[in-house]
Design a protein around this nucleic acid. Structure first.
Length: 155
DNA sequence: GCCAACGTTGGC
DNA sequence: GCCAACGTTGGC
């Protein structure tokens, strides 16, 4: 069995929120629309079924980790790229030569207390976490230690 | 293959 | 709403 991976996915709640995920059939959604190569590489190569992720709300008001989810399908081609009616079409990506990848996630639990960005910044053990050191990427790998700390803060 | 222009992200 | 950071594009 592959090593358990931990991730943090960012989303603008106005575009797609954690409650949107929890409201899906089977609480499961395709995480499509990623159009950044670094994030794509994570999705394609490293995010595996069985990995867990923190759902982070970015943007003016939220800026906090609000819940957890499970990866229920590892990286596979993002078919919305070659759908001209999708929100993120990319004519350079085709079914034969997919450029973008996505995963499927299933909502698990909402945190009792959302962990804010300010709290994360104020926690010395989290100062090297990818969320803080690599701004402007929508997908961040996390260590088990970081995962445990944030979840404990959210209880 | 360089690099300027441009677009996007996301905290403030 | 501003703007810094940074990724992408495209002319040369």
């Amino acid at each position: 069995m592959a090593k358990q991976g931990y991730w943090l996915f960012k989303s603008e709640p106005a575009a797609y929120s954690f409650s949107d995920l929890m409201g899906e059939v089977d609480r499961t959604a395709e995480w499509d629309g990623v159009r950044n190569y670094q994030a794509r590489n994570y999705l394609r190569d490293e995010v595996k079924e069985g990995d867990r992720m923190l759902f982070y709300h970015s943007g003016a008001k939220a800026k906090s980790v609000v819940g957890t989810a499970l990866v229920v399908r590892g990286g596979y081609p993002d078919h919305t790229a070659w759908d001209p009616d999708s929100e993120h079409p990319d004519p350079k990506s085709t079914p034969e030569k997919p450029r973008w990848y996505m995963v499927d996630i299933k909502g698990e639990a909402e945190l009792s207390n959302p962990v804010t960005l300010a709290q994360i910044k104020a926690t010395p053990a989290l100062e090297n976490c990818s969320l803080l050191t690599r701004p402007r990427i929508s997908i961040h790998p996390m260590t088990k230690e970081e995962w445990d700390i944030i979840l404990a803060m959210g209880e």
